[in-house]
Write a protein that binds this DNA or RNA. Structure first.
Lengths: 208, 208
DNA sequence: CACGATAGCTGCATCCAGTGCAGAATTGCA
DNA sequence: TGCAATTCTGCACTGGATGCAGCTATCGTG
């Protein structure tokens, strides 16, 4: 996909530099490790001044989550485009499925690196959790708005929290337990089964 | 409660200094704000060298969570002391209720401060989320061990994640709604109600 | 009580992330 | 081409965090 249509020259240039920062960082993080790579290194590799780095990303961690809002937006859109027949739970399931972990996380190089760093580097994990919580809140707000009669904001928060929590909890264990090189299909199946069990009480209306 | 029985003089002294660090920090954070208080300030207020601070707490944030392990331990104990009749879900509900937010978080000065800073300071929120995730994993591991036939580790992860996610998701919303409004009674009631809402779906067997 | 061993304390030097500022450079536009 | 608005960049500085080396206090033993 191209994002640069309709942008001014300035904006296109800016987008290019931004991308080259991400690329350079990916390269360096893989080669030297996250902590041993300094912001100055990254900036130098992308051929900009160190100070300028911070006009593209607010922090070193931010670099690893360059489109975190797109995910949320996609989920929110999926909620907006819901089937009127669907219950909140069904809408949520579909929305999360559409934009789930499986989209590209295992092919994309940055995504793979990110997964590793989330496990290994506390600062990165912390940032990831914050982004996730933020996303949850936004999704919950929209879900509550979409079902004003069936959900108040507290219930929506609980519902979204339960879903995201279940998936995260399961994924966490799977990634720790199974020695890395494991069939993605199998991992996914395990996670789905586990979340199904954990969330059964929420699925008052019957399975898919 | 006293924790200092059976400790050597060295250990008691150390515990005293540790406590005075927490006290000094609480004071300063309340007076000047978290970000404007430096580690050097805290150390000076507690009358130790700046460098020494880091032999008591690994970071500035850590100071705000001085007994995060005790919570986890209590929950784990509650799982160990389970009623053999109870299902995993019931055990989990009881364990969380026993050690829940309601224990002291609203009377204790540090705890109140912590709640505010979690909302206001990203770095603190990040650390809190990490601690929570960590706790989840430990609890899940023990729960799986307690119910070897009914839960594998992945399912336990999903279940605990769903529980904690639901509660935090609901509480988050509640706390946002009543801003800075410091009446502990009211807060507690709101939190309890949110918890109830969040866990209701799992309470198939009737209320207490 | 004395004494050596050990653990803890401290200052110093150093690294790195992140910010404010002011001037230079670049781009957009008339 | 020239002017205005953005953006880039170096510089100076703050604050958190770590390694190190030497000092001090505590501990257990004789």
């Amino acid at each position: 996909m191209r994002y640069d249509v309709g942008m001014s020259l300035r904006d296109r240039k800016r987008a290019r530099v931004r991308q080259s920062l991400v690329d350079a960082a990916t390269e360096l993080f893989e080669r030297d490790g996250y902590e041993r790579t300094t912001v100055a290194d990254i900036a130098a590799a992308a051929d900009i001044g160190t100070r300028t780095f911070f006009s593209y990303f607010a922090s070193k961690e931010e670099l690893l989550f360059p489109e975190s809002d797109r995910r949320v937006q996609a989920t929110v859109d999926a909620i907006a485009a819901r089937d009127p027949e669907d219950s909140p739970v069904e809408v949520l399931i579909r929305a999360l499925y559409l934009t789930g972990v499986d989209s590209d996380d295992l092919t994309d190089r940055l995504a793979a690196l990110r997964l590793r760093l989330i496990r290994e580097v506390p600062a990165v994990r912390g940032r990831a959790l914050q982004i996730q919580l933020d996303a949850q809140q936004q999704i919950a707000a929209h879900l509550a708005e979409a079902f004003p009669e069936q959900l108040d904001r507290v219930k929506a928060g609980a519902l979204v929290g339960a879903f995201v929590g279940a998936v995260t909890g399961a994924v966490q264990v799977v990634m720790e337990d199974l020695p890395a090189h494991h069939d993605p299909k199998e991992m996914r199946a395990a996670v789905e089964e586990a979340t199904g069990v954990a969330l059964r009480p929420w699925m008052t209306t019957r399975p898919h």
